Simulated scan of single mutants.
Amino acid sequence: MRILVVGGSGLIGAHAVDVLRERGHAVTTVARTAHPGVDHVLDLEFASVDDLRPLLAGLDGVVYAARTDEQRPLRKPIYPVFRQDIVEPVIRLFTAARHEGLTRGVIMGSYYTYFDRLHPQWRLATRHTYIRCRAEQAQEGRAAAGPDLPVAVLELPFVFGRAGDRLPNWAGPLDRWARSRTPLVVPAGGTAAASARSVAEIAVDALEQARGADIPVADENLTWSDMMARIAEAVGRRRRVGRLPAGAARVSLRFAGMLQALGRKESGINLTHLADLLLAELFIEPATGRSLDPALRETFADSATTAEHDRVPPSA
C-alpha cells in the first residue's frame, strides 16, 4: 500500500510510519512544521481540499495522527476554535481522499468517544467541548469519505512511548512530580493505557484490512495509583502512592473551573466536570495484555528531554 501519514513526526504518527515501512508499505508524511522525516510541510487547519488532493493522488490510504491539546484554556466561546482544529481539517482531508479514490483511512481519536457511547448518561459530549468535537470528527470525517472509503477511528487512552524527542505532552509534569519530594497523592479511579507502538500496529492492521470500525485501544487498565507507582519506579524513585479523597478532588477542580470562568476562559475538558472523569474507572475491555513497562521506561528515561512539555496532563 501507499499511505500518507498526517502528523508523521509526532509520537503516534512516527510509530505508524515505522510499522508501515516494516511491513513493506510505501509512506509519505506531512506535518505542520519541518522535522527530520517530514516530506511535506502543511498546516491542515488552513489547507483546502485543493491543497490536499496533490498529496493524496495515487495513494491507497491516509492516517490522521495530528495532536490536539484539550486542556489549553481558551477564551469563550471555545467551540469554534476546537471545531476548526479537530473537525474541519478531517472533513477536508477525507473529502480530498474521496476525490482521489483512496480506499482506506484511519483517524487517531480519543477514548472519550467510546465512553460517551457506553455511558450516555454521563453527557460527556454536552459537558466537554473536546469530546463533542471528537465525536463530530469521527461522524463528519466518515461522511466526507463516503461509503467507498472506510475510515477506522482508533479511540486512544493515555499513550506512553517515545519517538526521537517526541513524548506525550503530559510526560514532563508527571516526570517532575515523580522525581520530586512532593507526596504522590491521587484519586480513586483509573484509565486505560497503551504504548505508541501498539497503537501503530493496530492502526496498520486496520489499514491492511480496510476496516471502518470504532476501535477502542488498551494494552493495560491502570488505577491512578498503579500508574503513578509505575512512573515513580521508572524514574528510579519507587515510593508509596497515597489516596486523595474524592471530595477534595471535586472541590479543587470545581474551584479551578470557577477561576477559569471568571476569566471567561474554558478548557476542552471542562474542569468543573473533570472530577467525574478522574474518579471513574475509564477501562477498556478487552485489553491486549501487552506490558506497558518498555513504553514507561522510554517515556520517563531522561527527565531533561521532557522539560519542555510542562502542561496540565490530559487523558487522551
Score class of each variant (00 low, 15 high):
residue 276 D to I: 10
residue 277 L to T: 03
residue 277 L to R: 03
residue 277 L to I: 13
residue 277 L to Q: 03
residue 278 L to C: 02
residue 278 L to I: 07
residue 278 L to D: 01
residue 278 L to A: 05
residue 278 L to R: 00
residue 279 L to H: 05
residue 279 L to F: 02
residue 279 L to P: 00
residue 279 L to K: 06
residue 280 A to D: 06
residue 280 A to W: 07
residue 280 A to C: 05
residue 280 A to L: 04
residue 281 E to K: 15
residue 281 E to Y: 11
residue 281 E to L: 09
residue 281 E to S: 08
residue 281 E to G: 05
residue 281 E to T: 08
residue 281 E to P: 06
residue 282 L to S: 03
residue 282 L to H: 08
residue 282 L to T: 01
residue 282 L to E: 00
residue 282 L to K: 04
residue 282 L to F: 09
residue 283 F to N: 07
residue 283 F to C: 04
residue 283 F to M: 04
residue 283 F to R: 09
residue 283 F to H: 10
residue 283 F to A: 08
residue 283 F to E: 02
residue 284 I to S: 00
residue 284 I to R: 00
residue 284 I to W: 01
residue 284 I to T: 02
residue 284 I to Q: 00
residue 284 I to N: 00
residue 284 I to D: 00
residue 284 I to H: 06
residue 284 I to F: 04
residue 285 E to C: 03
residue 285 E to K: 08
residue 285 E to R: 15
residue 285 E to L: 11
residue 285 E to Y: 12
residue 286 P to V: 10
residue 286 P to Q: 07
residue 286 P to Y: 08
residue 286 P to F: 08
residue 287 A to V: 09
residue 287 A to W: 02
residue 288 T to N: 01
residue 288 T to K: 10
residue 288 T to M: 11
residue 288 T to Q: 03
residue 288 T to E: 03
residue 288 T to G: 05
residue 289 G to W: 08
residue 290 R to Y: 12
residue 290 R to Q: 10
residue 290 R to W: 02
residue 290 R to C: 05
residue 290 R to H: 10
residue 290 R to D: 03
residue 290 R to N: 08
residue 291 S to V: 11
residue 291 S to T: 14
residue 291 S to F: 10
residue 291 S to G: 05
residue 292 L to T: 02
residue 292 L to C: 06
residue 292 L to D: 01
residue 293 D to P: 03
residue 293 D to C: 05
residue 293 D to G: 02
residue 294 P to T: 01
residue 294 P to A: 08
residue 294 P to V: 01
residue 294 P to C: 06
residue 294 P to I: 08
residue 294 P to D: 05
residue 295 A to F: 11
residue 295 A to G: 03
residue 295 A to Q: 01
residue 295 A to H: 03
residue 296 L to N: 10
residue 296 L to W: 03
residue 296 L to K: 03
residue 296 L to P: 01
residue 297 R to Y: 06
residue 297 R to W: 12
residue 298 E to T: 09
residue 299 T to Y: 08
residue 299 T to S: 11
residue 299 T to V: 11
residue 299 T to I: 11
residue 299 T to C: 10
residue 300 F to S: 01
residue 300 F to A: 04
residue 301 A to V: 13
residue 301 A to S: 15
residue 301 A to Y: 04
residue 302 D to M: 13
residue 302 D to G: 02
residue 302 D to A: 10
residue 302 D to F: 02
residue 303 S to C: 12
residue 303 S to P: 12
residue 303 S to D: 11
residue 303 S to G: 11
residue 303 S to L: 13
residue 303 S to H: 14
residue 304 A to V: 12
residue 304 A to Y: 13
residue 304 A to G: 07
residue 304 A to N: 12
residue 304 A to K: 15
residue 305 T to Q: 15
residue 305 T to M: 15
residue 305 T to A: 14
residue 306 T to N: 15
residue 306 T to E: 00
residue 306 T to F: 14
residue 307 A to N: 06
residue 307 A to S: 12
residue 307 A to D: 13
residue 307 A to F: 09
residue 307 A to E: 15
residue 307 A to I: 07
residue 307 A to L: 15
residue 307 A to P: 02
residue 308 E to R: 15
residue 308 E to Y: 14
residue 308 E to N: 10
residue 308 E to H: 14
